[in-house]
Design a binder for these strands. Structure first.
Length: 325
DNA sequence: CATCAGGGCCCTG
DNA sequence: CAGGGCCCTGAT
């Protein structure tokens, strides 16, 4: 627990060159995600805190390019000098998390004429699957999402940040930083329950235990085939069918991780694909598989984010009814 | 005031 | 493999 912000005053800068096309805003800012105090986006610039190999950093990304000629300035803020090799590691981890080296040309070519995707791809060409979190951190996100409204999810995460996280100051921003799993592993369940986490207190403790012990190696998991990876992730306490695909897709960039639809998502896909209020989930799954094959989750992601972008400027009554704040 | 569902999952029978 | 229980909140 720390009330005094940690200041990160040492700065290093390096250029990143994602594969083209690359859409900066659509990649770093996902309007369907709930807001959290560990990151902030302002036109063309993105700040987030980054716990990496037992150190804490501040990261700032600045868009310096265009969609067809992308270039990003990566600034790394730290409390002490970092070595060249450390900087290189951070750079490649950031590139991984924002899927900067992906090749989506085939996807754009094959689905540029798909009647559902076409307008979306025109608006969002170059958007990548992105996620600022480590696997452990993303487990926290999926766990606070479970069986809760958006507001409650936000409250739980912010309570955790206050109790176990860091306040990190860099580049005139003050953001929350994640704790290391060890601190929650060592916390009592009562202490966690005081943060209004309910039955999830137990889940957080068991997840922290796995990651504090190091038995789940995220880097190693990245090279597993999706089926094996999915099986490993499902062994995590608190991770079931609805959460596992969030992990497969957002953390591990498996573009086809789409074989489960939760009730609120079912209503959204029913509207978009069939223009009906409620279509059977089996039918939706068949439809997305037939339409988009190995790209099905990526396609769904584009559609979802596009919808939530539209929501920023237009009132979409049926969608509003589904978003329980 | 009570009751209930909500971006699920675990555990039991 | 179906269904009850679980924490807390805000809506009704």
């Amino acid at each position: 627990m720390s009330f005094e912000p940690t200041r990160l005053e040492i700065r290093q800068s390096v250029s990143l060159f994602p594969t083209a096309p690359f859409n900066f805003e659509g990649t770093v800012h996902k309007p369907s995600h709930f807001p959290s105090s560990d990151n902030v986006y302002e036109s063309g610039r993105y700040w987030f805190t980054f716990r990496f190999e037992d150190d804490v950093f501040g990261i700032k990304l600045t868009d310096l390019g265009t969609i067809e000629a992308p270039e990003i300035q990566l600034e790394v803020f730290s409390s002490s000098e970092i070595s060249k090799s450390q900087l290189t590691k951070i750079k490649s981890e950031v590139e991984y998390r924002f899927d900067m080296q992906a090749n989506l040309i085939e996807f754009y070519k094959d689905y540029g004429q798909d009647n559902v995707l076409k307008p979306v791809l025109e608006r969002w060409r170059g958007v990548r699957v992105s996620n600022i979190y480590s696997l452990y951190e993303f487990l926290i996100i999926t766990t606070v999402l479970q069986n809760a409204t958006v507001r409650r999810s936000v409250q739980m995460l912010e309570n955790l940040f206050q109790a176990y996280g860091l306040k990190i100051q860099f580049d005139e921003k003050t953001l929350s930083g994640f704790w290391s799993p060890k601190s929650i592993h060592e916390a009592s369940e009562e202490e966690l329950r005081a943060l209004k986490l309910g039955y999830r207190a137990k889940t957080f403790k068991r997840q922290a235990e796995v990651f504090a012990s190091g038995e789940m190696d995220e880097i190693e998991l990245r090279s597993l085939p999706s089926n094996d990876l999915k099986a490993r992730l499902l062994t995590l306490y608190g991770i079931g069918p609805a959460s596992v695909w969030y992990l497969l897709f957002e953390v591990f960039k498996r573009y086809d991780a789409f074989d489960y639809i939760s009730p609120w998502e079912q209503k959204i896909y029913s509207r978009i694909l069939f223009n009906e209020e409620l279509v059977d989930t089996t039918k939706i799954l068949q439809e997305v598989d037939a339409r988009w094959g190995k790209w099905k989750m990526l396609a769904a992601h584009y559609i979802f984010e596009d919808l939530f972008w539209q929501r920023k400027t237009q009132h979409i009554p049926w969608l509003e009814a589904l978003i329980r704040l």
